[in-house]
Design a protein around this nucleic acid. Sequence first.
DNA 1: GATGAATGAGTGTTCATTCAT
DNA 2: TATGAATGAACACTCATTCAT
Lengths: 227, 227, 227, 227
Amino acid sequence: MSSPSLPHPCAAELPKRERRKEARPGELLDAALDLFVEKGYAATKVDEVAARAGVSKGTLFLYFASKEELFKAVVRENIAGRFQLWNEEFERFEGSTADMLRYCYSSWWEHVGSTRASGITKLMLSEAGNFPEIAQFYQQEVADPGQQLIRRMLQRGVECGEFRACDIDCAVYAVLAPLIFLTLCKHTMATCVPEAFRTAPQGFLDIQLDILLQGLCAPAGTPIATR
Amino acid sequence: MSSPSLPHPCAAELPKRERRKEARPGELLDAALDLFVEKGYAATKVDEVAARAGVSKGTLFLYFASKEELFKAVVRENIAGRFQLWNEEFERFEGSTADMLRYCYSSWWEHVGSTRASGITKLMLSEAGNFPEIAQFYQQEVADPGQQLIRRMLQRGVECGEFRACDIDCAVYAVLAPLIFLTLCKHTMATCVPEAFRTAPQGFLDIQLDILLQGLCAPAGTPIATR
Amino acid sequence: MSSPSLPHPCAAELPKRERRKEARPGELLDAALDLFVEKGYAATKVDEVAARAGVSKGTLFLYFASKEELFKAVVRENIAGRFQLWNEEFERFEGSTADMLRYCYSSWWEHVGSTRASGITKLMLSEAGNFPEIAQFYQQEVADPGQQLIRRMLQRGVECGEFRACDIDCAVYAVLAPLIFLTLCKHTMATCVPEAFRTAPQGFLDIQLDILLQGLCAPAGTPIATR
Amino acid sequence: MSSPSLPHPCAAELPKRERRKEARPGELLDAALDLFVEKGYAATKVDEVAARAGVSKGTLFLYFASKEELFKAVVRENIAGRFQLWNEEFERFEGSTADMLRYCYSSWWEHVGSTRASGITKLMLSEAGNFPEIAQFYQQEVADPGQQLIRRMLQRGVECGEFRACDIDCAVYAVLAPLIFLTLCKHTMATCVPEAFRTAPQGFLDIQLDILLQGLCAPAGTPIATR
DNA sequence: GATGAATGAGTGTTCATTCAT
DNA sequence: TATGAATGAACACTCATTCAT
């Protein structure tokens, strides 16, 4: 029914050398992402990256003009065009806004938080100061679209009476904060939180959602934050 | 024969040279904190630190055995022993737990978030991987006590019926996340959030408290997070 | 069965592939000469040479064992065996020695000075220090025969009473200097002399000849250079 | 009456370290000039320069920002402001123009040709192509003033009837060529000419002067260069 | 104690050369 | 034969650290 032994259809026709050439940039970006996330930009040596990718230092420079370009490529490569998909899902979504928020957290964890892509956020937080150009790119490609999406969600909730009115600008960050926090727990606060929390944070996300939704859904006139 | 206007009581009796000598380490730590926070560990040159402190490079090494020791000293020095005071305040506090949480956020912003001490958190997030020893120290001195304090607050709220029962381990992080988030906004996500948000985040903290308290205070049986 | 218009007689009978193969070394030497002369030995990359010759880097090493060998081949290849011809012309020459000298300058410009062969002299002047072996070869093949030829010309002039007696060893260099100077003007002092001078130096050569001949032809007893 | 043992008056008051600091740039430029002239720019390693100056590589970079800056400094440093002095001498000169030309050659040999300053000319001839900026500087500071001086000398000779009229632009180069030639003999054509010629070329310069002056001084109507 | 000149191990980058295809 | 991906030795340059003054 299926061809029993062809390793990979598109690779089958290329001589080994060629296949490697196509794979090289990816393998290098792969190795580089790991090391940059683990040790930071400065502490990562290009020899290490090359070695981890199984090539020599010279080969790395065949594909990336400099360490800085390698870093930029790592960031660009891993910033998925996920926001377009998420925006489309937002448009089509027919359930409650609460469910939408739940889906949003869950999808984030599945496609970003639990994957190596989350390392990019850590990199930005650590290195943004030294790469303003990249930081701006990240903001345009990730930060701004993300905040927009959350804002639209909250506005939807308020407009259809599901959420009480509130300062949406601030509420956006209330939604965002737990995701950022979780990312950091995974990458740089490892020892500060229990292992289970980092690898299977569904409980944390659920609690956050509960609290958020309880907070956002309270009747409009609820007297809160009295002091 | 005695100078009539003494600038500083403890410095009064020392000749100028001596006074400076005592002040040196502090001035160096001061300069170092700023630079480490701004540029990261690797990108900070010891010459810069010395220059900013107004001394020569050699002098820096008179007080700190190495750049690494300087870094560690910066972290240690700025990790205030504030938790002892906060713990005492917790013991004495007589108001509602909601008010206690409000006081906690407010005090954190006043004594940590709005001060340079918040830079230490940023440093830990960026450099912890390369300084495990320091990371552990930070955890013992800051992370653990902080989480303990929050936990006790939440337990108090639950025990006296103010908060509904919930997974306290996770709720701790719900309280913590906004503070971490705010710290990052100030130090590494500057361009991602409005200026006003970073320098005067009372609105953000209020919203967070509202949402948190609404979420935590909901009647025990409140049906939430159905899915 | 025979192609009607043969582009080149000796290439006619070979299939295209073969022809190219034979032409390869020449094309490479061609490209290399240009680049070595223009940029110097060290600043010339073998990739550039290969690219200019329209082949890959690997192919270059098929024909020349190393960059150094390529350089040596460039020099050897372009050191014309012109001296044999010139020597024969010298033997047969029947006019005055002054005319012979004029012919010599003119022929040098036509066959060396105005052609790329003059680049070899520039190369020697620039790189001889790093290629003693090649420098020696150049001396044997070019410098010595050239000086010999000039010497014989001057001796002929003196012997037949056309030129006054003088230190011939030094006079040789008086004849040589303008040619060396002209070569340098073309290749490395471009900006120091007017454009017209470099590309059409007949005027310069004429003046030089005038001065030289006036100087060499003065009556034997002419009191000169008194001081 | 004289202090018997003070090594150097101006150095006596400085501590040894300080003195060295002032001497360092000069020592490095010294070493660099030798090596650049001997081996060319690319083949000269900064370590070698440092070693020859008796310091470490790091020290070199304390005084010169890069290898290129070192090279430029070498050229600038050795391009004496000799032309100002020569111009003044020209203004004051009261003898014949022939004597002036003799003095000119002799002074050039004494102050340039026989010294290491002549190495700069060799450097320019070899490396100008790779350092256009330096080449321009050299032209302005050396080539142009030199040609100007020669031109004025020739004009003086023609105007006072000593020299016959001729194309002065070309005659300038006739005067220049032997000096360039001699420089090259010393630095890159060493093996092409006898040892004595390079180190004591007075004979050569005399002959050149004789020929030049015979050529330039011939009566205006002398029939020359007939062809 | 304070200085800053000197150091040299370490790193990013280049490029002639090799060799599997 | 021709290719061009891969290599690694070599080099310019940095910067934490030392130490004579």
